[in-house]
Amino acid sequence: MKIVCRCEDITEEDIIRAIEEYGCTTLAELKQILRLGMGHCQGRTCLPIAAKILARKTGKSMEEIMPSFRPPVVSIEVGVIAKKVKK
């Protein structure tokens, strides 16, 4: 068993199963089905590895398998941002 996404506890087998069962061809679909890359590190660790698995299984190039990007870049406390409101 190889862990690919440490934050969300997802293995290589989970990814391969999702690709085969649901016919996923993109990282976006793997995110939706498995929560891959939705954890604390925002996929910085797991998405490149998952992209390689996808490329291998689907025959697509790494460039085609682009992740979407949702800010902020690093997680930040609600209260810290709330302080930025000018009253």
Binding site: Q42, P72, E77, G79, A82, K84
Partner: peptide, 18 residues
């Protein structure tokens, strides 16, 4: 973040992921 902190003050200490 501002409004959430008003509605539920303890959530001010929770981190926003995306």
């Amino acid at each position: 973040a501002y409004t959430l902190g008003k509605y539920a003050p303890p959530l001010k200490h929770v981190r926003i992921l995306r």
